[in-house]
Design a protein around this nucleic acid. Structure first.
Lengths: 340, 340
DNA sequence: TCCCTCCATGGAAGCGCTCTCAAGCCTATC
DNA sequence: GATAGGCTTGAGAGCGCTTCCATGGAGGGA
């Protein structure tokens, strides 16, 4: 089963070094020897031991994806699976493995940090939507671990991939304005998460451009969950908005329920736009007009960038220039706002 | 940053062996020495190198979760995230890491098999709902890798954790019978997946007990997705069922749409029961009566069992007795069947 | 024909840790 | 006071691989 280099070497009649060279595609091996060794490898059913290799090379080809506690509860949202799928797909293509770490309440987060950051198993890691006050990112800097954040981060040493949240929010709000709405409310996300901030900013920008009211009462904070959206909408309804922009589809779904619960119709009484374009945007009735973001692509890009960072670091002995990527969003018009 | 045992040893004025003993909580170290070493460890900021340790112990404390190609497309279903969350949580508690491998179309599956099974990084793995004709399980036996399957498997060497799919299906169907339905249709899952088989069996059992028709026309095969459920329901509608049991909530959601599209009302014209109790079971209108399964628990249990298997193997030098676990399901009554 | 260079290969020293074995010391027992 | 046994500790041999360095042989230029 688990044969070693030596055995293959013996069987091929060459030295261990030579077998190693063949395995690593080192150029200076004669074709003849190479063939002989290949045959021996084949015949022994040999596979290099990844752990030993890692010890020698100081590279594991394992990346970590850390989902901080602040967003763990969102894990059941279709957002994460999709992002994760993109990431694993990119890992597959690039010959990496992905270790998933969810911070859950059951484990002291300092322990998790330790285990993750210092286990020595990871070549680098992806911080999935760490919020601004997560201690994760400072910790990673302190440890000197290559990482990429998903979502922008003000620290300008941070590599990140983000989507154009602000632009998306602008499109959403503009769409409602274009439909003639004046009292447009917004259900935002947690203030410490940058996507929430950016989406709010986009909304405010458009409202102000059109000199529309965006008073305190028209803005409610949700937590990106359906229940949160529902609760927020209930508050907002007191202000009689004719339209709402929800910073996530999950919250929009909750809002739809709240609106219905008040006996109001969508889109006739209240129009609504979401954000994300998760599958359930088309499950609700009416289907949700929303802002689509390329979720899988985010995961993919994060992996690609991280590998670049790691390679760069290996090559130069220190971090290369900060890398950043902002992906575009897209307005998807469906039934929840009435005809466009 | 990355200090070694030797440095700590030097700093504490003891040998490398002693430091190693302290780290591994070996009993035969005097309290005095232990304290001295602890202090040195603290002071150096030393953390053992996991890779080196793994090489020496032949244990990585990494588990793999493999999602075969046959079910990868279901990954966006809330089922997987929940199961995954359960699994990672158990891993955290037990001090393990979890590598996630999704088979995606972009990578040759034989390569994936190789990478997964023989990388040497994994102490064992969890096969997530491998269908009967996946080559994954035979491959794992061939390699002698400890593993646990999620979902029953006919090979009686296979360790698995499953839910009582058949019992759940029985409850669902019984519920409809109790409500007076006679023409009860079923939307099944792919025939090669055991949960689909078991749910179908449960349905057939109840139908036959009550001498109700369960003709070919009343049974349609979906693929566990919403789109599949919708298509299946469209077929079934030709048979004028008054009730439907869908083998998954996603399919039930699709069925709801198909029913609505025909201008029929739920539950008045057609009652519907789902399976899983995923969050969107409560997003649709009316909320879905369904069979709840303890999804997170499945992931947790799979991890616990796997660790047992691994430990057992290490202790005895060969596989311990086959381990199996079947978790109960529960009927959740909501609006989609009318009043109970 | 001789010397230098280049290429293919082997030898051996690690990578950082664990763990067996042996040695040293101390206490208890007779 | 001598011996046996227990408790601590250190030395060193790996775990399986990579990689630097040295070696030997072949080929080319003078």
């Amino acid at each position: 089963m688990s044969r070693t280099l030596d055995e293959v070497a013996k069987s091929a009649g060459v030295s261990r070094s030579t077998v190693s060279r063949v395995i690593n595609d080192h150029p200076s091996v004669s074709d003849e020897t190479r063939a002989k060794v290949q045959a021996a490898i084949e015949q022994c059913g040999y596979r290099p031991n990844a752990v030993a290799r890692s010890l020698a090379t100081n590279r594991t080809n394992i990346l970590g994806m850390v989902v901080p506690e602040s967003v763990t509860k969102l894990f059941t949202d279709p957002y994460f699976p999709l992002m994760l799928r993109g990431a694993t797909e990119a890992c597959n293509r690039r010959g990496y493995h992905l270790i998933l770490s969810l911070f859950t309440a059951s484990v002291e987060s300092s322990i998790m940090h330790d285990r993750i950051a210092r286990s020595g198993y990871l070549d680098g890691l992806i911080a999935a939507n760490a919020s601004l006050d997560d201690k994760l990112i400072p910790g990673l800097f302190a440890e000197g671990i290559p990482f990429v954040n998903i979502g922008r981060h003000p620290d300008d040493r941070v590599n990140y991939v983000d989507v154009d949240n602000r632009g998306g929010a602008r499109m959403a709000t503009e769409h409602l304005v274009r439909l003639g709405h004046k009292r447009i409310a917004m259900i935002g996300g947690p203030a410490d998460m940058t996507p929430a901030q950016d989406r709010l900013d986009g909304y405010l920008e458009v409202m102000s451009t059109h000199r529309l009211p965006a008073s305190k009462g028209l803005i409610a904070e949700g937590d990106f969950t359906e229940a949160g959206g529902r609760a927020a909408m209930l508050e907002l309804l007191a202000e009689n908005p004719t339209a709402v922009f929800a910073a996530s589809d999950s919250m929009a779904v909750g809002a739809v329920k709240a609106i219905r619960a008040q006996g109001l119709r969508i889109p006739d009484d209240v129009a609504i736009v979401g954000f994300d374009d998760i599958p359930s945007a088309r499950t609700v009735d009416p289907e949700l007009t929303t802002i689509r973001q390329p979720i899988e692509r985010i995961g993919q890009l994060a992996v690609e960038m991280l590998i670049n960072v790691i390679d760069g670091k290996a090559a130069e002995g220190n971090m290369a220039a900060t890398q950043r990527f902002v992906l575009p969003t897209e307005l998807i018009v469906r039934g929840s706002c009435g005809s466009s």
